[in-house]
């Protein structure tokens, strides 16, 4: 838009002062952007609670698979200023944590959840909730073949991508052709794992209270 007027531009734009020229040229684009922006903002106000509820349901559905149990009760709480879910078994014992984390992928935001054991020392697994990675390459981050590589990793090490299968803790074999998407998932998981000490403290406090 800030380019010099093109040859076919209006006469007014060419002869008028530069600022007036831009406005003459672009008032329609600017006002449409404003109107559409307001429209989308209103839509967001109405729809985001519904979308959040859908995501919450998805987390409830996936949590047992990640933590490897039949049934869990998720209780939302704040740890270190972040929203996490304490996972309890039907008897009310704390069996693990579900931590939502998000960040940028190759094609847009990635949102995922991490499952941790009660002491937050081991990563039980991850599940990708939303992603817009390249179809056929980056979107393999949602496949079991990739997410299972995070199973039973120690929470204290940083996840990092490697090119060949490795038994080293924290070594996640990247997806061929989707190195950035793979690394993005590692970065997001590491971000979630930063809560491990706070979660560990919260777990100890909870067990003291129950005693």
């Amino acid at each position: 838009m800030t380019d010099a007027p093109l040859p076919e531009a209006d006469d007014a734009a060419v002869t008028g002062p530069p600022t007036a020229g831009w406005l003459v040229q672009s008032w329609l684009v600017l006002s449409l952007a404003l109107v559409f922006g307001i429209g989308l903002a209103l839509m967001h106000i109405f729809l985001s609670p519904l979308i959040a509820a859908n995501i919450r349901q998805e987390i409830e559905r996936q949590a047992p698979h990640i933590l490897g149990v039949e049934h869990v009760e998720l209780i939302q709480q704040e740890v270190d200023g972040r929203r996490v879910f304490a996972a309890h078994d039907p008897e009310g014992t704390l069996i693990g944590w579900v931590v939502p984390a998000s960040g940028s992928g190759f094609g847009g935001p990635i949102e995922l959840i991490l499952g941790l054991d009660a002491q937050a020392t081991t990563l039980a697994g991850i599940y990708i909730i939303t992603q817009t990675e390249t179809p056929g390459l980056g979107d393999f981050i949602t496949a079991d073949g990739f997410t299972t590589r995070f199973r039973q990793q120690p929470a204290a090490v940083r996840m990092d991508t490697v090119t060949t299968p490795s038994d080293q803790p924290g070594a996640i074999q990247a997806i061929t052709g989707a190195t950035i998407s793979s690394q993005a998932v590692c970065t997001i998981v590491n971000d979630g794992l930063r809560l491990r000490q706070a979660l560990n403290r919260a777990a100890r406090e909870a067990s003291h209270e129950s005693e």
């Binding site: 329609l28 684009v29 989308l40 979308i51 859908n54």
Partner: peptide
């Protein structure tokens, strides 16, 4: 429409409604 800005206007309009559909489906 200004001839050299028309594609911008088309894309803006399309992107707005696609965003709406995307959020509508998610909800």
């Amino acid at each position: 429409l200004k001839p050299h800005l028309r594609i911008l206007v088309f894309t803006l309009t399309i992107a707005t409604f696609v965003t709406f559909v995307d959020r509508f489906l998610a909800a």
